[in-house]
Simulated scan of single mutants.
Amino acid sequence: MTPAGHRLLQLCSLTLAAGAVALLALAACGSTPAPDHAAHAGMPGMDHTGTATPGAAPSGMPGMAGMAGMTTDEGLTAERDGYRLDSPATELPAGVPVSYPFTITGPDGRPVTDFAEVQTEKLHFYAIRTDLTGYQHLHPTMAADGTWTADPTALAPGDWRLYASFTPNTGPRQGKEFVLGRTVTVPGAAGAVPLTAAVPLPAVGDSATVDGWTATVQGELTAGKAGPLTVTISRDGRPVTDLQPYLASYAHLSAFHEGDQALAHLHPITPVAGDHGGPTLTFYALLGRPGNWRVFLQFRTAGQVHTAELTLHVA
């Protein structure tokens, strides 16, 4: 083959490969893939975590970490790409409402004050104990100097991991989503708040009931490989069709890995159409670690947010 013919063959191969990736994204998401993560931040069904955990890219799906609904596990470090979660608090009191001050510093060492809105909020804050109990999902406030204040409800004694999920709106990583985490200790006071023993992780199951609503999960997940996860909401055996939008979608799913507390969180790709969500919501999940994950599924009905809890296994 002549050199010109060889170059033409290479060009055709690259074009076909790019087309195959685009078609795969369309088939999985039902929409045209965004050109970059910043372009789709905050849209219904989009993931919060645009940075894949090293070595945990979806099998057979290169370059698609930003696909709708997918997420990787994060929050195991306080710093990434020059952005850092800082707080003067290393301990918090037990059994009483507390305030947790923190800042997000950028590569220049200064507090970041300009954040993009993702799923209706500029920062999502999570708290969970090392035994994966006490889950809290909060939306703190930020002062003009970049100091955030989260107000978790009373914490049981033990070690807790706190997470901040955010997207810088300016700077060298503009539009890139981060999940950073730090650990704090909540000491038990003798005679006041006793030490609380670790709670064993509940058995793996595919359904959970909260406040009379039942969430049933279907789907087999493999670590490092994106796969569909379907959630069906029912009440008294009847399908629920009046879910209301919560954080710009019909549900919010947080999952924490047993052992290291890696966090994954995602929203359904199901389109939002007023207060008429359900009964079935479809997610695309990408969990980078095998083992058991404690899942917290939040959804809204009649103005109230419900949190269903269950344990899923990832092969």
Rank of each mutant, 00 (worst) to 15 (best):
residue 86 D to Q: 04
residue 30 G to K: 06
residue 7 R to E: 10
residue 24 L to K: 14
residue 301 T to K: 15
residue 113 T to R: 09
residue 214 T to L: 09
residue 302 A to V: 07
residue 93 P to V: 13
residue 205 G to C: 03
residue 164 A to D: 00
residue 221 L to H: 08
residue 118 V to C: 04
residue 119 Q to G: 08
residue 174 Q to E: 14
residue 284 Y to K: 02
residue 65 A to H: 13
residue 48 H to Y: 01
residue 147 T to I: 04
residue 84 R to Y: 07
residue 272 V to N: 04
residue 16 L to F: 12
residue 86 D to M: 11
residue 128 I to N: 04
residue 20 A to I: 11
residue 189 A to P: 06
residue 243 L to F: 11
residue 183 T to M: 12
residue 277 G to L: 05
residue 235 R to H: 14
residue 194 P to L: 12
residue 21 V to P: 01
residue 37 H to L: 12
residue 134 G to E: 12
residue 201 L to P: 01
residue 62 P to S: 08
residue 189 A to V: 15
residue 254 S to F: 05
residue 195 L to G: 12
residue 138 L to A: 08
residue 256 F to Y: 14
residue 264 A to R: 07
residue 70 M to E: 09
residue 21 V to D: 10
residue 24 L to C: 10
residue 114 D to C: 00
residue 158 G to N: 12
residue 211 D to S: 13
residue 167 T to K: 02
residue 3 P to H: 08
residue 104 I to V: 15
residue 125 F to N: 04
residue 219 G to M: 07
residue 14 L to C: 10
residue 229 L to W: 07
residue 78 A to W: 10
residue 12 C to Y: 14
residue 9 L to M: 11
residue 274 G to W: 01
residue 87 S to V: 10
residue 254 S to I: 01
residue 34 A to S: 11
residue 299 F to T: 02
residue 308 A to L: 08
residue 45 G to L: 01
residue 254 S to N: 06
residue 102 F to N: 05
residue 178 F to H: 07
residue 173 R to S: 05
residue 128 I to G: 03
residue 129 R to A: 08
residue 105 T to D: 05
residue 107 P to G: 10
residue 203 A to N: 03
residue 119 Q to K: 03
residue 59 S to W: 15
residue 303 G to F: 03
residue 136 Q to D: 03
residue 217 V to W: 02
residue 11 L to V: 14
residue 64 M to I: 02
residue 242 D to R: 12
residue 69 G to W: 01
residue 79 E to H: 06
residue 291 G to A: 08
residue 166 F to R: 00
residue 45 G to P: 07
residue 97 P to T: 14
residue 53 T to C: 02
residue 123 L to D: 00
residue 300 R to G: 11
residue 140 P to S: 09
residue 69 G to P: 02
residue 28 A to G: 08
residue 87 S to N: 07
residue 158 G to P: 09
residue 10 Q to F: 14
residue 54 P to Y: 05
residue 91 E to Q: 15
residue 238 R to E: 14
residue 3 P to D: 14
residue 122 K to H: 10
